[in-house]
Design a protein around this nucleic acid. Sequence first.
DNA 1: CCTTATTGACTGCCTGGTCAGTTATTAGTA
DNA 2: TACTAATAACTGACCAGGCAGTCAATAAGG
Lengths: 236, 236
Amino acid sequence: MAVAGQRRRRKEERPGEIVEAAFEEFARSGFMATKLDDVAARAGITKGTIYLYFPSKEDLFLATMHEMSRPSREHLAALTAAPQGSAMAILRTHFAFEYAQMVEDRRTREIIRMLLAEVSRFPDLADRWRAEVIGPEVEALRRVVRYGVERGEFRPSAAEQFPHLLFAPVIMACTWRLMFGDDHALDGPAYLDGHLDLLERGLMCGSRPNPPPSAGEGAPRSGAGEGTTLPERSRP
Amino acid sequence: MAVAGQRRRRKEERPGEIVEAAFEEFARSGFMATKLDDVAARAGITKGTIYLYFPSKEDLFLATMHEMSRPSREHLAALTAAPQGSAMAILRTHFAFEYAQMVEDRRTREIIRMLLAEVSRFPDLADRWRAEVIGPEVEALRRVVRYGVERGEFRPSAAEQFPHLLFAPVIMACTWRLMFGDDHALDGPAYLDGHLDLLERGLMCGSRPNPPPSAGEGAPRSGAGEGTTLPERSRP
DNA sequence: CCTTATTGACTGCCTGGTCAGTTATTAGTA
DNA sequence: TACTAATAACTGACCAGGCAGTCAATAAGG
């Protein structure tokens, strides 16, 4: 192990490597059952080295959670833009991302698992998650729903008060996969399509398929509308 | 402590008391962090006594989970009856129960938390839960949806393939409360009403509010229909 | 040779599990 | 009723192993 520059890695790569290894072990065994010796072994170092970068096991756990939830926090930026185009198209795009992140990405799933498992030990974790991730997302979704209502595309509904109802199927698929494993995963494009289909029918304005009064697009439920450059899901 | 018959409680009450105390401790701290001394103290006995009734900590945990999930298993009996009356009314009744059990009942919530937290340590737990609780529920819901379609009340939709979409908001409210605590609970009748409203609009047949061809009830979304003797939720 | 990153042996504490002993209860005897 | 033996239920001190956290020693760079 006499690679040049091996000792110079401290401030650059070591903390990231430790956090990476810690995530795998915490996700596998939970906070209490995780042994720092195992984390160190996975990172290719010894336990003492961990304490050069993190003052305690708890701090390592908090740092790991914060680091691993970064993608979720960054994803929010895209959602907070002012809505334009078809509200349903915005939802379609958003839930495609959301689904890819919360269901198909193993890391985000495991973050959710650890949040649920360790809230009693780390109450601040849930608070931060709500303040930085879920809360803003709920508010953004609420704006989209109101935008759709103002636009005449959506009817007034409980979705304005509880935007949570809109992404509930994503949480469902996430917890399902967490609980029953990848072998029984509830995903695939069909599930997302079904989610969006029920959503559209549940939200859309009026009992008859009349187009919204603004843009000249067709009926709202015929495929995705304008207002986004992101790929659309196929619809059966 | 010279109450007559105090020593005769063994086969009758002791195991139940231990399981009860164990549930509280496991729910509070998770499997690993729970100390059997604390369980014993909560049950008003000493650790040695636990080992008179349960061979190991793991066995105590499994027994606790099995015992505490009994209400959920028993609740299924009501759901497997042959559907009759309005399909929407069946769903309404069912989700009122489901909501009371999975969201408002602290014990069932904590069971879900422990299942999610400890699947990697006890893989059989999730299998049993799927085989005995969730699986039958999904199938029962699927039958209700098909019944609604055959009856002309529901349109064909992805809910036939994924009945999970229907109870996703219940799981959402459950995990929300697990994560953010009772203070930020997402419940109250309004949430359930919103859920049912979106569900009804999402499932109902046709684009115009025509009544189903069978019974002479009004438009499907005006209150609960016939076919059940259970109490209805208020609708705003 | 001086600095810096890393090691690995060590300690102290904690907790699952054990078991010889203690106490309450019942059965038996007269 | 009084007294004793047998049994059932329970206790608590103890052990053994495991693991978070420490620190003097070591090796790698410059």
